[in-house]
Simulated assay, not measured.
Amino acid sequence: MKKLKKGRRGDGKATLRKRLHHWNARKFLQKIKRVTMLKGVEIVEVKPAYTSVIGMLKYAPQLSIDKDVAGAYVIRRRALSYKEDVPENYEKLLKDKAYLEFALKRYEEREKELTELIEKETNEYKRNALEGELRSVENARKLLANFLQSLQSKPSSREGANGRNPEQGETKKVSQSA
């Protein structure tokens, strides 16, 4: 039996790691496109933004699948030109002002807790983790506060050029008599 050479990490797979390190996703996608074009298969490109989140919230509970499979399901639906609607339960929550204010208070309380924990923490690595969580809580709080403010404010009337609003219809013309 022949002994395997050990790589830098002791697993005998140094060449595999080297190949994977230089792997180019763009070239791989170009090759897939070229092969599918030669075979007569259509490729539909979709933006994968928020597919995992939508899949996790909408399809994973309904279909009893994990979030990654649910994200792939959302990508497939986008490729078939389906639009994703916000589920009714989430729509109700987003319209409930009392719930939004409650959620905003919770974010503010968590922000204070994290700030206090960061001040007390002496371990640099734990502090970094807490600061990362604090940033995500701050972002969520700001987003929720802006959303709540947009619900509370009344739409203002826009004025067009020279004080005219094109959406208000015909404006009266003032004629000057000599």
Score class of each variant (00 low, 15 high):
126 K>D: 12
79 A>H: 04
49 A>M: 08
120 K>T: 06
136 S>Y: 05
139 N>R: 12
117 L>T: 01
158 R>C: 10
3 K>H: 12
52 S>V: 02
89 N>W: 06
43 I>Q: 13
41 V>F: 04
11 D>R: 03
11 D>T: 06
131 E>W: 07
95 K>H: 11
123 N>L: 07
106 R>F: 00
118 I>E: 15
36 T>R: 08
4 L>A: 15
171 T>A: 15
29 L>D: 14
82 Y>V: 01
141 R>G: 05
169 G>Y: 07
62 Q>L: 14
116 E>Q: 14
155 P>Y: 03
168 Q>P: 00
112 K>A: 12
66 D>W: 08
13 K>L: 08
2 K>L: 11
136 S>P: 01
128 N>Q: 13
137 V>M: 11
52 S>N: 08
158 R>H: 11
10 G>D: 08
76 R>D: 03
15 T>Y: 09
159 E>W: 13
140 A>G: 07
171 T>D: 15
90 Y>W: 10
128 N>R: 11
57 L>N: 09
17 R>E: 06
24 N>D: 15
135 R>W: 04
89 N>M: 02
25 A>R: 09
30 Q>N: 15
61 P>T: 10
54 I>R: 00
118 I>R: 15
29 L>N: 13
10 G>R: 12
171 T>R: 08
34 R>L: 09
143 L>Y: 09
37 M>S: 04
103 A>I: 02
47 K>I: 03
102 F>I: 01
87 P>Q: 06
87 P>L: 04
61 P>N: 07
113 E>W: 04
81 S>E: 13
87 P>F: 05
135 R>C: 03
21 H>W: 08
57 L>F: 07
114 L>D: 09
54 I>M: 02
21 H>Y: 14
69 V>N: 05
118 I>Y: 14
159 E>V: 15
133 E>P: 03
175 S>P: 02
114 L>C: 09
110 R>Q: 08
59 Y>N: 01
142 K>C: 02
175 S>T: 12
103 A>S: 06
